[in-house]
């Protein structure tokens, strides 16, 4: 996690327009979203948003309170990095030559990534992990030439046996 970043896990009603309401609140109140991920939960009535945002204690408090006022927001939790499993996902297409292929594949293995597409002059690699790990991987392979890259925002769940969605009831 970068300086000042924090993770919000937000359980929302799963219907049209909810993403707009949440993201609209951020822009209207002049807060920035570093990343946002949303998908339906195991209960089709709800979706979970994982939002990484930035700000000091006062901003965190305001964001949390303002979000709680939205009708479609059912539950909101500020996750602490130590108690959270956080994962980002990277798909990256790297230029390869006969000479560099070995070194690239080796680095993919070190980073526990996978080669998901293979061409004469390009490799597409998938890596998951925390932000820093992906940054490091990108930095390393940039020497070979990055053709295309796509990175998804973080997913987060709290460590332990509890289920956030169920606690709600």
């Amino acid at each position: 996690m970068k300086q000042g970043q924090f993770i919000l896990s937000v359980l929302v009603a799963n219907h049209a327009g909810v993403l707009t309401r949440v993201s609209g609140l951020f822009s209207r109140r002049n807060y920035n979203i570093d990343s946002l991920n949303v998908a339906v939960t195991e209960d089709p009535l709800f979706s979970r948003m994982t939002i990484i945002a930035r700000g000091d204690q006062a901003v965190r408090e305001q964001i949390t309170k303002q979000l709680s006022k939205l009708q479609d927001v059912k539950k909101i939790e500020l996750l602490t990095p130590e108690k959270t499993v956080l994962r980002e996902h990277l798909l990256i297409k790297i230029k390869v030559t006969k000479k560099t292929r070995g070194e690239i594949v080796e680095s993919v293995n070190i980073f526990r990534g996978r080669v998901v597409d293979f061409n004469i002059d390009a490799l597409t690699v998938e890596v998951t992990g925390e932000s820093d790990k992906l940054d490091a991987f990108i930095k390393f392979v940039s020497q070979f030439g990055i053709l295309e890259m796509c990175r998804a925002g973080a997913l987060a769940v709290k460590r332990g046996a509890g289920n956030d969605n169920k606690e709600e009831e």
């Binding site: 327009g17 707009t20 009708q71």
Partner: peptide, 11 residues
């Protein structure tokens, strides 16, 4: 109109 009034309604 729901889009337009989203920031100025409670819901």
């Amino acid at each position: 109109i729901t889009g337009i009034t989203m920031p100025v309604t409670k819901h």
